[in-house]
């Protein structure tokens, strides 16, 4: 018996009791936060990320705008108590800047920035807790925050991380697994099947790459369903709230008549 934790045991279970292709449970909260236009808190297992979106709006610095499209600005902040060991990361920390740049480049082809020339879209990412799969949690949360801000995108972006233990691929790694296994993060656009991000920081055998890549694509589809359900239930709730707001006060159908639905054609 070794003191090391078995990544994948003979029964096909991982250290936290999941199967090979099983994702941790995802909790999506799209409720409003502060003055943000859109925001989303994703709790993916023990990883928790809060993303807020502001914009499209006039840029703080005029010089940074582009004349034909909006600029996406991503700022990331890792809370000092999010990891086991307390470590203060400055805002200009290399690792954080790199993650922010990755998120930015993932969303640039998806967000229809050409609709908002000379403006800026701010994406602020707060990492509240981390236990593996930080990048994919950030990307999924950003997708949902952008959607709840009503910013037009060509598709969802669903990201998932995958790794390989000897020859068996695993999905959605925890920190424990990430430390021991080669792993990568794949972001797919589920409707078109396009891929906007493949991030690989460790060495991975070429023969295993295709496996994980395909698997991550499938997992993206599953995530898409989950994310779509969250958006739909939020929208349904908002519509429901609007309808109750418009309901006539007790028995007076006449009051409701006053809300005239504007029609496109005009009668003279």
């Amino acid at each position: 018996m070794s003191s090391r934790v078995e990544i994948l045991n003979d029964g096909g279970y991982r250290s936290d009791g999941r199967r090979q292709y099983e994702l941790r449970d995802i909790d999506i909260d799209l409720s409003q936060q502060g003055t943000a236009d859109g925001c989303c808190t994703i709790t993916h297992g023990l990883t928790q990320v809060l993303v807020t979106v502001f914009g499209p709006k006039e840029a703080k610095m005029r010089s940074q705008t582009l004349h034909d499209r909006a600029v996406i600005n991503v700022e990331m902040n890792v809370l000092p108590f999010s990891t086991g060991e307390r470590r203060r990361r400055a805002r200009a920390d290399r690792r954080i800047l790199e993650l922010a740049a990755t998120i930015k480049s993932t969303f640039e082809p998806v967000v229809q920035t050409t609709l908002y020339p000379r403006s800026q879209i701010d994406i602020f990412v707060q990492v509240l807790q981390q236990d593996g799969g930080l990048l994919h949690a950030c990307i999924n949360a950003t997708t949902l925050a952008l959607i709840s801000a009503g910013i037009p995108m060509t598709d969802f972006v669903c990201a998932v991380s995958g790794g390989v233990h000897s020859t068996s691929p695993l999905l959605d790694l925890t920190t424990l697994e990430e430390n021991d296994l080669p792993h990568m993060t794949v972001a797919v656009m589920p409707r078109t099947g396009k891929v906007t991000l493949v991030a690989l920081e460790t060495r991975l055998h070429v023969d295993r790459f295709a496996d994980i890549f395909r698997l991550a694509g499938d997992a993206g589809q599953a995530l898409h369903k989950e994310m779509k359900r969250a958006v739909k239930s939020r929208a349904t709730r908002l519509v429901g709230a609007m309808e109750t707001g418009m309901k006539p006060p007790m028995g007076g159908a006449d009051a409701f008549e006053r809300d005239v639905v504007m029609e496109d054609k005009m009668s003279f």
Binding site: Q32, F81, L128, Q129
Partner: peptide, 29 residues
């Protein structure tokens, strides 16, 4: 915060219906 020795989340003035708004602070030791 599960990884902190002590933690608290505080909100002043959350909007009751919206589930958002208000001053929000997290503290952890």
């Amino acid at each position: 915060a599960p990884l902190a020795n002590g933690s608290a989340k505080l909100n002043i003035g959350k909007a009751p219906q919206e589930g958002g708004g208000g001053t929000e602070v997290i503290a952890a030791t």
